[in-house]
Design a binder for these strands. Structure first.
Length: 444
DNA sequence: CTGGGGAAGGGGCCC
DNA sequence: TGGGCCCCTTCCCCA
């Protein structure tokens, strides 16, 4: 993570001298007025308009090819390094940059983006509970299953342009998200002009890239999505969108999921999702309109939304079917719909399936990073807080993670447990051995 | 320039 | 739920 460049926020959080133990559970709350700015400023696609104060991830989003954004956009996440990212794919893409700044200064401010071409007026009331279009895990996890719900569920934002157009244009805005229509804080309406692209969806396209962290973080970082209406409501804003930015959101890999799906899972997922498009609306949407606040404002998205929900149903069905014969709670009777891996609890299935779907419900309040699990977020936040509870007894060097300390200890011990099976050369880390073998023995 | 190595970040799994 | 652990990757430094 470009440690040498972490001279901004990261380095500023240096452990006070004399403190041997860090308190890690501090919520890392840097106010910065975000509580209000959230409702007034929307920056979709944070390519270069970040607050310099957030230096930690800043450089990452400035074309350096952050792991996160790069993954999302290029879909190379999880790829072995043999398949190095093509420079052309890592090049700045014609991403739709929606830098929406408050004009009127009111909650219902007219927001204006930075450039002024091809205006596109969109009236939308937004409630985004997660950049991954999280549905309510409290609901997803419910049902016939006894296992507690996961802290973040997601549907896969796979949409097809043509279908999206059909369902989001014109009179569709009132029906954009019927699931949240009852709740003024969670409706998501998109008013489209003729010929205009469905901005609302494009907005969500960028949401999938993490731009809604600021809305979702207050929810997801707590692992509680029931706090509906807090922070994340953006009151009726008129968005003027310009630029020739390609407002496309098809099933392209670069927009599929979070980009952290592994291998061909996205292709696989895409295929799967395209298979059953006739699923009925999931029941939980009716139970709680808020839970679907992240649903895309079109029928296709709804279908896809349902399909992922159905994946949970599927897990539940498997729980009922397969698991009905077993009374052993430890038995892995819940299976991933993608890889068929077994788990003892549907919640675990759901969490695991984020590997395939790229769902990352947990957002850092200080940067654009998102995580599939709460602990990932918590661990990440030490980047901002500078918490380094683990110190090397040999050199007093401190680390934020124990495994890093463990790795560091090899420096002192000279341990090189990884030996080349061909030449016997030893390495301290497996990666060196792998590289060595690749270069010298054509293996790996 | 190359390769080894240190540090640090995220992903994922297991307990 | 969280910690431990491992893996992978990236950045950086240095010989």
């Amino acid at each position: 993570m470009a440690r040498g460049q972490l001279t901004g926020g990261h380095r500023s959080f240096v452990k006070p001298v004399g403190h041997n133990t860090w308190i890690d559970d501090q919520p890392d709350t840097v106010d910065e007025g975000s509580g209000t700015s959230i409702q007034h400023v929307i920056v979709i696609e944070s390519a270069d308009a970040e607050d310099p104060g957030h230096g930690v991830k800043q450089h990452r989003s400035e074309g350096e090819g952050p792991r996160q954004s790069g993954d999302i956009q290029t879909g190379v996440a999880g790829a072995p390094y043999e398949t190095m990212e093509d420079p052309t794919t890592s090049a700045p893409q014609p991403r739709t940059r929606l830098s929406i700044t408050e004009v009127s200064g009111r909650p219902d401010a007219v927001l204006k983006s930075e450039t002024d071409t091809k205006p596109l007026t969109v009236t939308q009331r937004l409630l985004h509970r997660g950049s991954d279009h999280i549905s309510d895990p409290e609901r997803l996890g419910q049902g016939p299953l006894s296992c507690p719900p996961a802290s973040g569920s997601e549907y896969l934002p796979v949409f097809h342009q043509s279908q999206r157009m059909v369902h989001s244009r014109g009179d569709g805005y009132g029906d954009a998200l019927d699931t949240g229509g009852d709740d003024p804080s969670c409706s998501y309406t998109t008013e489209m002009g003729p010929g205009n692209m469905p901005l609302g969806l494009e907005t969500q396209t960028d949401l999938s890239k993490g731009d809604w962290n600021q809305y979702s973080s207050s929810l997801h970082s707590e692992g509680c999505l029931d706090k509906k209406g807090e922070v994340i409501v953006i009151d009726e804003v008129t968005v003027k969108m310009e630029g020739d930015a390609p407002l496309t959101w098809n099933a392209d890999k670069t927009h599929l999921g979070e980009g952290h799906s592994q291998g061909n899972t996205r292709d696989f997922l895409e295929t799967k999702i395209n298979v059953a498009t006739h699923s009925h609306l999931h029941a939980f949407r009716d139970r709680d309109s808020v839970s679907t606040s992240m649903a895309p404002s079109n029928s296709q998205g709804r279908i896809l939304f349902d399909q992922v929900l159905n994946s949970n149903d599927r897990a539940g069905a498997q729980a009922q079917g397969v698991g009905a014969t077993s009374g052993n709670s430890k038995e892995k009777r819940f299976f991933c719909m993608f890889c068929n891996k077994g788990f003892s609890c549907p919640q675990k299935v759901e969490i695991h399936q984020r590997v395939h779907t790229g769902g990352k419900p947990f957002s850092c309040t200080q940067c654009q990073m998102r995580f599939a699990q709460a602990r990932g977020l918590k661990r990440h936040q030490r980047v901002h807080t500078g918490v380094k509870p683990y110190s090397c007894p040999q050199c007093e060097k401190r680390f934020s993670r124990q495994d890093h300390l463990k790795m560091h200890l090899k420096v002192h011990t000279g341990e090189k447990p990884f030996a080349c099976m061909h030449c016997g050369k030893r390495f301290s880390e497996r990666r060196y051995l792998r590289i060595h073998q690749q270069k010298n023995h054509s293996t790996g």
